[in-house]
Every structure is written in structure tokens, then in C-alpha cells.
């Protein structure tokens, strides 16, 4: 049964005359992997910030995990996880210190943290590295760990902002396996990426151009609609027409 965990209805954000996100409407279902694509400056980041409760919309409505983005931002923050390529973990803390810190922020009980940490480290084969400083880990491990930390408190939705930039092809796939596993557990994945092959891994993909969602469907249907052989082509067809390119 479909159960929408994110709904956006004519969600709009204006900065003065500039309409960063222009009447965007979509729904994301529970356990879905939702690819959120767009050229630089298309308005992805703004939209994502509104959904995370970090930015107040100018008009329109949206709910995340059943909570209103205008009034219930604190509730939203309790129910989501967030990870980006730029901000993930504290480099000068150890692996287990990072986990403990984030779990603590979400108010998890000490015993629960302890048990889950052991489980997580085991799952990522990181048990021997528990007391290693994060900066000493290879990038791929860091990103996998960052993702696991982002879903450590079992959020309903996790927002991933270009999580795999610069990661080697094998680790990138291991990362996506983590994503799949989380989705199977019922965690909804909302992900942006510049790798078009990763767009294919998503259940559904939306493509933003100049602040509007120009296409939203399964990768398969999108390719059919745009008569393309790959998502790369679909993306290029849509984004080539983009007029604005401000970050």
C-alpha cells in the first residue's frame, strides 16, 4: 500500500524577485528511493532545505513524515537524517565518538547506542577501527560510515546530498547497497547525484530545470518518454534548455 511520507504542493521559495523553487509538487512514498536531479542552480538545494525544515517556504505547502514544514520543523528534524558530501563527520573525532555524538543529539538512550554501535561497526567491518580518527579513514569508508550515522536513529526519511562524489566505483556500489538495505527497512531515501548511472538505481526520479520539476517518473518511463537510451540523455535533453545557472 502506498503511503506518502513527503508531500509537496506548489512549494515555492522566492529570494526577492528570484524564484529559486517555483510551485514544485510531488509525493514520495515510504521506502522509496527518490532521485532528485537538476543542473547546478536549478533549485534543488533550496527545495531540499525547505523539506528539511531549514528554510521557510514563500508559498505552497509541504509535509515531511506527516509534519508541516511551516510549523513543525522541530518534529521534522527528529524524523529525518541528513548527509552530504561536504558535511558528514568530525574528522578529529574517532569513529565511535562520532556515532555516540550523533546518537546523543537525537536523544538515544546510552544502552541502545552501545548495542547499535557494536552492530553497526560489525556490519561495516569497522570494528577494528572503532578508535581510529575519522580523518585517517579512506574516503569511501567515511562516506559509508556517514550514511550509517545519518540513519542511526532510524529516521523515517534520509536526505542525501551528492553522497558519492569522488568515490571509487566499487565503494560507490557498496554505498548503494547500504541505501537499498535502508530502503528495504522502510527508510525513505531522498538523494541528489551528479552520476547519471545512479539515477537509474532510484525507484523514481525528478528532474528540476529553472526552479520547476520538468519530469518525474521511473527511470524506465522517462527514457521511453524522451526516447532516450540512458538517463544521461534524458537529463541532457531537459537541462540543455535551462536558462539560468546561478548557484
Amino acid at each position: 500500500m502506498r503511503e506518502a511520507v513527503i508531500t509537496a504542493n506548489k512549494l515555492t521559495k522566492k529570494f526577492g524577485d528570484f524564484i529559486a523553487t517555483n510551485e514544485v509538487s510531488f509525493e514520495v512514498d515510504k521506502g522509496e528511493i527518490f532521485g532528485f536531479l537538476g543542473a547546478n542552480g536549478a533549485g534543488k538545494t533550496t527545495a531540499m532545505r525547505m523539506l528539511c525544515g531549514l528554510s521557510m517556504p514563500s508559498s505552497g505547502s509541504a509535509t515531511v513524515a506527516g509534519f508541516d514544514v511551516y510549523k513543525q520543523t522541530e518534529k521534522i528534524k527528529q524524523n529525518i537524517g541528513y548527509m552530504s558530501q561536504k558535511f558528514s563527520l568530525y574528522e578529529d573525532l574517532t569513529v565511535s565518538e562520532n556515532i555516540r555524538f550523533y546518537a546523543g543529539i537525537y536523544g538515544m538512550a546510552r544502552q541502545a547506542i552501545k548495542e547499535k554501535t557494536a552492530q553497526l561497526l560489525n556490519q561495516l567491518n569497522l570494528t577494528p577501527e572503532a578508535n581510529t580518527l575519522v580523518k585517517a579513514l579512506p574516503l569511501g569508508w567515511k562516506q559509508k560510515l556517514a550514511f550509517s550515522v545519518a540513519i542511526f536513529h532510524e529516521p523515517k526519511i534520509v536526505f542525501l546530498d551528492e553522497p558519492t562524489g569522488g568515490v571509487d566505483p566499487i565503494t560507490r556500489r557498496e554505498f548503494w547497497n547500504l541505501i537499498y538495505r535502508a530502503a528495504e527497512r522502510g527508510i525513505t531515501i531522498f538523494v541528489t547525484t551528479h552520476y547519471m548511472d545512479e539515477a537509474e538505481y532510484c525507484n523514481r526520479v525528478s528532474i528540476m530545470v529553472d526552479g520547476k520539476i520538468e519530469a518525474l517518473d521511473t527511470p524506465r518511463n522517462l527514457k521511453k518518454t524522451f526516447n532516450a537510451t540512458s538517463m544521461d540523455e534524458v537529463f541532457l535533453q531537459l537541462a540543455r534548455g535551462a536558462k539560468r545557472s546561478d548557484d
Binding site: 537538476g38 543542473a39 547546478n40 569522488g166 551528479h194 537529463f235 541532457l236 537541462a239 535551462a242 545557472s245
Partner: peptide
Amino acid sequence: TTGVDAVSRK
């Protein structure tokens, strides 16, 4: 081309 979208990369 790191961090640049597919169109600009092309």
C-alpha cells in the same frame, strides 16, 4: 569537472 552538472561537464 568535479561537482559540476552533467550539461556543464559535456
